[in-house]
Design a binder for these strands. Structure first.
Lengths: 231, 231
DNA sequence: ATTGAGGGATCGTTGAACAATCCTCTACGG
DNA sequence: CCGTAGAGGATTGTTCAACGATCCCTCAAT
């Protein structure tokens, strides 16, 4: 009986999910992630509300959720727009990643660690690479680092980084050279994972620093060129 | 001329700041921070909306903003309540603080650092202590650590910690022994500041770790007793 | 080329309405 | 006396329509 009650408690999160606004925000979030709404797009209350068949109030609540995740920006009396990251934003994202991810690795106790999540993310990336699905490789790389942060076992830290990684995806989408951007990092994730398996935190951290510095450099380089085209 | 335009651009942020929902949330946020609405208080739509002279829709938007900041919790069909932190919440807050604040100190480059903000916060705490205003001492301590995080010069990191510190204040309100809770840490902040002045990052970090561990222990101890009373 | 006025579109906010849910109080039966 | 069931009131959840405010675009005038 106690077990059944526990199972029910686990399902409770799913039940509470019945809010219309949350479902709408789920839809919009994946649309944005897949590039259906490119950065800079204005999301009109009228047209989207009409298309989805929800009231303006509900839609605005969904917008608010996504604004808080930094996927949308709100301009008073002008509406909401899909966020356009500046180069400074990208640099700040990597600054935050370096700060937090390195701190997580450094703060790990003695091995063994729970590395199942990381292993799964690596496998996900390898599979996507075999199929030449480079966008999914990028997603898998993000999953790897999300799992890395999860090792800190801190709800708040995990949530901050979830939002940071969502922003990063915006940058990836602008860049539009997925293979060049994501392929090199599969091997580096593996190296980090192996260092952790061996309990060598220092090595893992230095690999991580190198990873992030290289990745930032590459993203910014392509990003700057890309932004230069438009402006 | 170019300089004047730049100054104007800086003021732009102030101009765009007018939305009734945001202003309402600003009011409620400071009321919560000062303890006018203690944790556990239910915020009725009718009474607050009436008192502030805003419509229910607008008020609910303000509630949502604060719910996203974790200052309020929303219970379906029951309304919103000022958040009551659990012991686990407090532990996670300190876990996050330790991770981030230590990483900030460790990630500092070579001295000198911009320590004006920290110095100002220390002075603020000393002044409040002289006047026996222990709640303000707690606020000053939070300011000190906010300034510490600001040394990382990362907008995202600063924003995460701003929210974490706001949550922490909720715990302080429950504890209600401000002198015992805040006084000992004035001297420890000074010690950290001096270590940073001397460029000794390692010492500053170890002082910080000791500070956070002690503070957590003390808050949790009193907090557990306090929660036990009510339940 | 710059300025200013007008019009259309969109957002911000309000008020009302109705359904759903919760809380309290009462009455009933054991 | 205690526990339970139910009625009623109060509060929230959700949607809709309306009006004012703001922004953007166009076009004419200087």
């Amino acid at each position: 009986m106690a077990e059944q009650l526990k199972d029910l408690a686990d399902d409770r999160a799913l039940l509470g999910r019945t809010s219309t606004a949350e479902r709408v925000s789920d839809i919009l979030r994946s649309r944005i992630a897949e590039g259906y709404f490119p950065p800079g797009t204005r999301l009109s209350e009228d047209s989207i509300g009409g298309a989805l068949g929800v009231s303006r109030n509900t839609l605005r609540e969904a917008f608010r959720l996504l604004t808080h995740e930094r996927l949308l920006v709100h301009e008073l009396n002008r509406g909401v727009f899909v966020r356009v990251l500046t180069v400074e934003d990208v640099e700040d994202i990597y600054r935050t990643r370096r700060l937090v991810e390195c701190a997580v690795v450094r703060g790990l106790g003695e091995p063994p660690y729970g590395l199942d999540g990381l292993t799964g993310a690596v496998e996900e990336g390898r599979r996507a690479a075999r199929e030449g699905d480079w966008k999914s490789v990028g997603t898998a790389n993000i999953h790897f680092h999300r799992e890395l942060v999860a090792l800190a076992a801190s709800e708040r830290t995990a949530e901050l980084m979830r939002s940071v990684f969502a922003e990063l995806r915006l940058a990836f989408h602008v860049v539009d050279e997925p293979q060049r951007l994501h392929e090199p990092y599969i091997a580096r994730n593996v190296a980090i994972l192996e260092a952790l398996h061996g309990g060598d935190r220092e090595k893992a951290e230095s690999l991580l620093v190198g990873y992030l510095d290289d990745s930032l450099e590459r993203v910014v380089e392509v990003y700057r060129r890309r932004v230069g085209e438009d402006g």
